[in-house]
Write a protein that binds this DNA or RNA. Structure first.
Lengths: 223, 223
DNA sequence: ATGCAGCCATGAAAATCCTCATCGTCGAAG
DNA sequence: CTTCGACGATGAGGATTTTCATGGCTGCAT
């Protein structure tokens, strides 16, 4: 799989190239938008990692040019800060995912793999149950149309629940997914996290969606 | 490489066995101390992961029996809480490393790999510079004989500095090691972390050990 | 029916970590 | 030597996450 990286900052670019190579991809790096556009038009890449901030031709312009030329490869945007406008603009122009700098490399790798597997996303990825909705890309949740702000852990937990709705999730499973922890009952982080999530997602609404199954774990479903 | 896991709690045991198998090791699991001792005596394993809390024969007894029989394989202890006595007792009995539950699987994997690479530790692993000492196993730091409490990040940072003493560590490198982050200059977490570490390790002592190299990064050394 | 034990919920405090604004300092350039 | 700009230091504030203590509920045993 060939990946093109368009990134002007030397350290970040090298880091990405090396990391992706070590992960078994073929990665090429160019350091400005113009080269990025040319290479991207060549059609030999399966994925494009595109920094928004580039000298000269910026990321948006590169993306626009590629889409205009009918290039359909998946594009992962790198944005400098968590500016909602940036994200939305990128997604509208046809980016398939984005990542806010600074980010963990493992996170990037996960997204790259997802994009390569599923190709270009035609639909924004949305998860929902009853009137609760989660826009995974924009990292935004709403219930009954009301915007809900979530922290990182809350988001991870809710995403897990929504992806597994109707399934009973054991604490050990939740711990391994959300905390990367081998669960050993000497902490109640999970209960507390569930509490926080409930406060935001269930407390002021009906019907309740998060249910406790004594001795087993939790389920998300309509009752 | 064959690894023997002695763990009574089903979930934890299965989790470990599966995780280690997926990482390319051959892992066998037994659920009580007696079986653990017998399998351990068989001599066909390269590493032993041993829970302290076991019904019947506990982890310490198993370890003692193995060492008494002259078995020299590396042993990684799992302790339930961060009880200093437990750690010390385990290490005295001849454990080579320990891990406090709950733990991240990646952490376990890292330790397993270290142990398999270096074999039995004859010496407790200590890092030092001037009158600053760090006992990596006990996760304890002292300077001029005075005990210093460190948080997780502080510990990781200090360990990095001590392992690389005399080397100039660029921010991007520190970020990748301690934060698993792709560094992008829009945050000063590193400066802040250095500040906190200096407050504990350098502020009240002479000579200073952490030095700033403008435009390059930081070094730990005696000046 | 009553009591008990285990499990879970909950609020509050504490710890840790990150962000932000401001200030100081170093070094190059004039 | 002085000035300026960039880089780093620092303190305070805030957000998030974890720990802890307590109390309630459920289902089983008596």
């Amino acid at each position: 799989m060939k990946i093109l990286i368009v990134e002007d900052e030397a350290k970040t670019g090298d880091y990405l190239k090396q990391g992706l190579s070590e992960a078994g991809f073929t990665a090429d790096l160019v350091r400005n938008g113009l080269d990025g556009m040319h290479e991207g038009l060549s059609g030999e890449f399966d994925l494009l990692i595109l920094d928004v901030n580039l000298p000269g031709l910026d990321g948006w312009q590169v993306l626009k040019a590629l889409r205009a030329a009918g290039r359909d490869l998946p594009v992962l945007f790198l944005t400098a800060r968590d500016q909602v406008e940036d994200r939305v603009k990128g997604l509208e122009l046809g980016a398939d995912d984005y990542l806010v700098k600074p980010f963990a490399f493992s996170e990037l790798l996960a997204r790259v793999r997802t994009l390569l597997r599923r190709g270009r996303a035609k639909e924004p990825e949305r998860l929902a149950l009853a009137d609760l909705e989660l826009d995974v890309l924009k990292r935004r949740a709403t219930r009954a149309g009301q915007r809900i702000d979530l922290t990182a852990k809350e988001f991870a937990l809710l995403e897990l629940f929504l992806r597994r709705q109707g399934e009973v999730l054991a604490r050990s499973f939740i711990a391994s997914q959300v905390w990367d922890m081998n669960f050993d009952s000497d902490t109640n982080v999970i209960e507390v996290a569930i509490r926080r999530l409930r406060a935001k997602v269930d407390d002021d609404f009906t019907p309740k969606l998060i249910h406790t199954l004594r001795g087993m774990g939790y389920v998300m479903e309509i009752r």
